[in-house]
């Protein structure tokens, strides 16, 4: 009887709480989605310039996209796009191999250098990332990788070289795969290499996909190192520097709406990749923490 009473008095209160929660979520969702909607609208805006007196565009056009994809004189976006694509494909292959190799070795193999390596990785991670940037630039310069077309190689080297320090998430995932599976395979005569390539990797699809995609996305969103390395070599620019340049004083009036168009264009593939790999990201994270 008492229970029944409690349920009846709870019901309207719960309904109010429910409504409040949904209203709150709605407001928050608008706050989170509004800037994105605004970029998309701006990319179709007919009036040029960064600042307008109205929030919504007065006229709509596709010219921003056309200008972005065809104007090769001032800011050559198609060229930047191919540059970035080449860099990101190559560095994606190399750094995926690096990350997964290191993670597997640290998770499954036992060797003297293992603990020191993990401690070293932690210590190196505490230094500000681009404290090393200038020195890296000097080293690349002494290798002759800072002029003309070799800037691309320089960028690839920089994006890949230190990825061996970012093993934590993959290692955490490998740690959650039962060792008994490996042991069974080894008893059947498999070598460690075969265990790695034929057993662990196929079982770790989420984390492999996660690693590939983060490695692929990195060159698209890094602008600071690319800026230092490319300096004024406009034909080596990556997409990120190009977009950044469009917002500088000399270009912003003419290029602002094109910037929005460019932002939309590179966001679409990244968004699709991300929404697709979201599941793996969550799984990878919770695996890492559990391990």
């Amino acid at each position: 009887m008492e229970n029944q009473m409690a349920k009846n008095t709870m019901s309207p209160r719960r309904r109010i709480v429910n409504i409040l929660v949904h209203v709150l979520l709605g407001i928050l969702a608008i706050i989170w989605v509004l800037p994105i909607v605004w970029i998309v609208l701006t990319s179709f805006r007919a009036e040029p310039g960064a600042y307008t007196t109205t929030f919504l565009p007065q006229g709509y056009t596709l010219n921003n996209y056309i200008k972005l994809l065809t104007d090769r004189n001032v800011l050559n976006f198609p060229k930047m796009f191919t540059n970035t694509l080449i860099i990101s494909i190559i560095s994606c292959v190399i750094s995926t191999f690096f990350v997964l190799s290191v993670a597997y070795s640290l998770s499954r193999m036992r060797f003297k250098f293992r603990k020191p390596y993990m401690n070293m990785a932690m210590i190196l991670g505490l230094f500000p990332g681009f404290m090393t940037m200038i020195a890296q630039y000097f080293i690349l310069k002494s290798m002759g990788l800072t002029e003309g077309a070799s800037i691309r190689i320089g960028l690839i080297v920089v994006y890949c070289a230190c990825t061996g320090l970012g093993f934590q998430i993959s290692k955490g995932f490998f740690d959650t795969i039962p060792r008994s599976i490996d042991e069974a395979a080894i008893i059947d005569g498999a070598t460690q290499w075969q265990v790695f390539t034929r057993i662990t990797l196929p079982l770790s699809k989420p984390i492999v996909i996660y690693t590939v995609m983060t490695a692929f996305i990195a060159p698209w969103v890094d602008f600071i190192f690319a800026k230092v390395l490319c300096r004024a070599n406009a034909d080596q620019f990556t997409v990120a520097i190009g977009l950044w340049n469009m917002l500088q004083k000399e270009y912003i009036y003419q290029w602002y709406t094109c910037f929005a168009a460019g932002a939309v264009l590179i966001s679409i593939p990244i968004a699709i990749l991300f929404l697709y790999m979201q599941r793996f990201y969550v799984e990878g994270m919770s695996g890492a923490v559990k391990g």
Binding site: F98, S101, V102, L124, T132, C162
Partner: peptide, 20 residues
């Protein structure tokens, strides 16, 4: 196997992180 797998990443870290 760890030697095979970790040599290149370690060289990369050495040249582009530790030395700098």
């Amino acid at each position: 196997l760890h030697m095979t797998l970790m040599t290149l990443p370690c060289i990369g870290i050495l040249i582009f992180n530790v030395v700098p």
